[in-house]
Design a protein around this nucleic acid. Sequence first.
DNA 1: CTGTTAGCGCTTTCAC
DNA 2: GTGAAAGCGCTAACAG
Lengths: 335, 335
Amino acid sequence: MRKKVTLKQLAKELNLSISTVSKSLKNDPEISQKTINRVHELADFYNYKPNALAVSLKSSRTKTIGVILPEILNHFFAKALYGIEKEASNHGYKILTCITNESYDKEVEYVEMLNYSSVDGFIVALSEETQVLNKFDHYAALKRDKVPMVMFDRVIDEIDCDKVIVDDENASKNAVQYLIDSGCSKIGLITTIGDLSVAKHRIQGAKAAVADKDVELHEFKLKGASRAEEEILAFLKSTDLDAVLGLDETSAAVTINSCHRLGYKIPKDISVIGFTDGLLSKHSFPKLSTVSQHAEDLGERAVQVLINNIENDDEKYVPKTQIVKTSLILRDSTN
Amino acid sequence: MRKKVTLKQLAKELNLSISTVSKSLKNDPEISQKTINRVHELADFYNYKPNALAVSLKSSRTKTIGVILPEILNHFFAKALYGIEKEASNHGYKILTCITNESYDKEVEYVEMLNYSSVDGFIVALSEETQVLNKFDHYAALKRDKVPMVMFDRVIDEIDCDKVIVDDENASKNAVQYLIDSGCSKIGLITTIGDLSVAKHRIQGAKAAVADKDVELHEFKLKGASRAEEEILAFLKSTDLDAVLGLDETSAAVTINSCHRLGYKIPKDISVIGFTDGLLSKHSFPKLSTVSQHAEDLGERAVQVLINNIENDDEKYVPKTQIVKTSLILRDSTN
DNA sequence: CTGTTAGCGCTTTCAC
DNA sequence: GTGAAAGCGCTAACAG
C-alpha cells in the first residue's frame, strides 16, 4: 500500500513549517494569501487529504456510527439499514455495520469492539436472544461511559437511552379493527417471532381490538421456520378462519400460499394482512395488505436523534422515545 | 463521552513507565513475571483495551474493510453483505458499508472517503451508472496506491484487480437448456437490468443454448420498474410462450403473478425460472425454480481473497478472477 | 505572518 | 528488568 502525502512532506517541499501548512489548508486569516495559494496548489497537485486516523486521534471524533443489527436477510432491517446509511452519509458520517444473527454473545462482542474502535455513537436493534435472556450489561457500560446510543424497533425498558420505535400495539389494533369492520369474526394471529417484545405488543393490540366484541381470536406460534408451511396448513385446516393477521411478513406470505393450496380464495373466503411492508407483499398473489412500519424512516430518525446527541454532547441530556406512526396499506388480500 | 483508561494512567497508578506497561500487557519475556501480573490485574480491573485509533495510526492497519454496494434492498446484495460481514468478523475485521444507489458520483465520493479513512482494503460491486458511463479513474487511483481491492459480481475488465464472479453465461445457458429439455420451444427472456454486464452475459448464454436448435427466443427489456406488471402482461399476451427465464428475481416474480392474471397454469401452460435465489422465489406460488448464485458464498470468497492480499502485501501480486459456480434449483414452477 | 512545542495513545528501539 | 525517547499525522496554544 503506497503511502499518502502528509503535511510533513508538503511542508518540506514548500520550505514551510508543518503548522503553517496546516493553517494554510484551513485558510487561516493569519497566513498570507500568497502562502495559502502556494500550499493549496501543491496540496491539490498531490491530492492531499488529511489522514482521518490522525484527526480522529486528536479530536476523539471518528465521524463513524456503529450499527448493530440482529439480521439483514430480512427486508425490514435491510430497509432500516438503507435509511441509516443514507442519513448518516448526508451528515458526513460513515457506518460500521455488525450483524448479530440474533445471538447475545455476538452482540456483546460487537458492542465492545465498536466501542474500542471509538465510534461516535451506536444505533442498535436488539437480538432476539438478548431479549430472551434479558441481559444488557454491555449497554449499561456504554451508558456509564456516556456513549451516545439509540435503540430502534427492538428495545428494552431497562436501558435509559434514546429510542425510536413503532407503535406496534396500535398498529395491530387498527389492522384487526379493519378486519372486523370488513365483516370478519374469526381471526387468526400467526407469528414466527413470539419471543420479541414487538410480537407481544402486536398481540396485545389485537386483543384490545376484539375486546367485548363478538369476535374470536386464535393465536398460533410457529415452532420452526423450516416447517412453517406444514404448520400453517394444519392450523388453517383445524380452524375455520375468515381472516389472518401475520405478525411478520413471512407468516403472512406463507399463509397466502397455504390458502392457495387449500383452495381458499383470497380475499373472498379469507382476508390476510401482514406486518411489515416488504418485497414479499408486493410480489405475492394477490398482493398483500400490510401494516407498513416505515423502516426507512425509522432508520433515518434513529440517525437524526443520534447525531443530535453526538454533536451537542450535553452533560445532562435526557433521552427520549420517538414513536413512528405506522400505516395500513390496503392491497388485494383484504376486502 | 467518558474517557477510556490509557496506558499512561495505568503506568501512573502502578509507578511504572508507559513502555513497561505496554510490554507487560504483551507478556514480553523481558519483563518480570511479578510486574506482568500487577499490570494485568489493574488492566483487568479497569477493563483496559488499547485505543484502536492509536494502534492504527502507528501500524497503518485499521482491520477495517470498505464495502461498496450498489443496493441493499435487493436480496442478492443483502445476502452478499451477510456473507461479507460474517467472514470479515471471523477474521477480526470490521466493515464500513456504503450504498451507492447505483450512482456514479456517490461511488466516487465513497471510494475517496473510505480511502482516506484508511481502510485496509475494498470490496466493491459496481453501480449501474458506473458501468454505463464506463468511468473508473477512482479505482485506477486505488490501484496506483496499491490498495488491496476485490470486485464482485459487477466487475469491469479495465481494472486489473481480484475479482469474484458468477459464471452468468453458463448459468443462463444451463437454465435455458433445461427448459428446452423439458419440452419448451418458445422462451421469453425478461429483464429489468439490461444495462449491466451480468445481464448481457445471461443473454449470451441463453442464445448459446438455443443456437442451431428449433427454439424461439424472445427478449424483453422492461422500461421502468414501476410499470413492470403491465408491461409483462402485455408482453405475455402478445407472444405465446411456453417458458420464461427472468434475468432477475423481480422479473420472474412479476411474471408468475401475471400468469395468474392471464389464467395460465404454471408449470402446465408455462414454465418459469428466475435468476437469483432470494426470498421471493421461496414464497411465490408456485415456488419458483431459480438459478442460485450463492451470493453468500460470493461475499465470503471476496473477503477471503481480500484478506489474503492484505495480509501478505506482496509487491508483485498478480490479481486473479475466481468464478463461483451457480446451481439450478428446481422447485414447482418448472416441469 | 510563520514557527516551535506539546500532546492525542500507542509501539519500539535503545540506554541504563 | 525498566525506562526514556522518538515517531505515526495532525491540531492548537503560544512565541517570535
